[in-house]
Amino acid sequence: MNIFRLTGDLSHLAAIIILLLKIWKSRSCAGISGKSQILFAIVFTTRYLDLLSTFISLYNSCMKVIYIGCAYATVYMIYMKFRATYDGNHDSFRVEFLVVPVGGLAVLINHDFSFMEILWTFSIYLESVAILPQLFMISKTGEAETITTHYLFCLGLYRALYIFNWVWRFYFEGFFDLIAIVAGVVQTILYCDFFYLYVTKVLKGKKLSLPA
């Protein structure tokens, strides 16, 4: 465990909780892509199946349970509890265009052709693109609530911190995992455009709105 890992995990946790609180407090999931949230629930489910087979640490198990629990709670709030506020018309990204190629890639490029390993690889690839329906939704409506941008910023920051973590682990532990690194870099790149808007607009007190 290094400082980048820890702050990365906490940033990820902050993002998840910000989103849950936003929906809960405003009693609305307007502007949130339910499809992205379903993809994240799939990501956590397929990656953390090892909860049932291997124990790593209390920290590890607790975080996994929290991530999975929050992911399903978010999906429940969007599609059940606050369904009336869900903006389905703008959430029109075709997720099969992500899930099918990502599934194929996980079967083709993995460390070991076993069930658990392919699921792990699938979750890594899927996570790197799971935010696309959300970004697509923002580009379609042309704006995002400030709280939604904080959520996205924390989520992007988590991935950027994980990259620093991998650099650290490569130097000090001689460890690297090419699949995780490539997927992590792709994921971070997807946020670059958003980071720019966040710094130039949201941090200066303006609402995030895109030019028409």
Partner: peptide, 10 residues
């Protein structure tokens, strides 16, 4: 060994 190393990551 890399597979064992990464198992502690979330």
């Amino acid at each position: 060994p890399s597979r064992e190393c990464r198992k502690d990551e979330l």
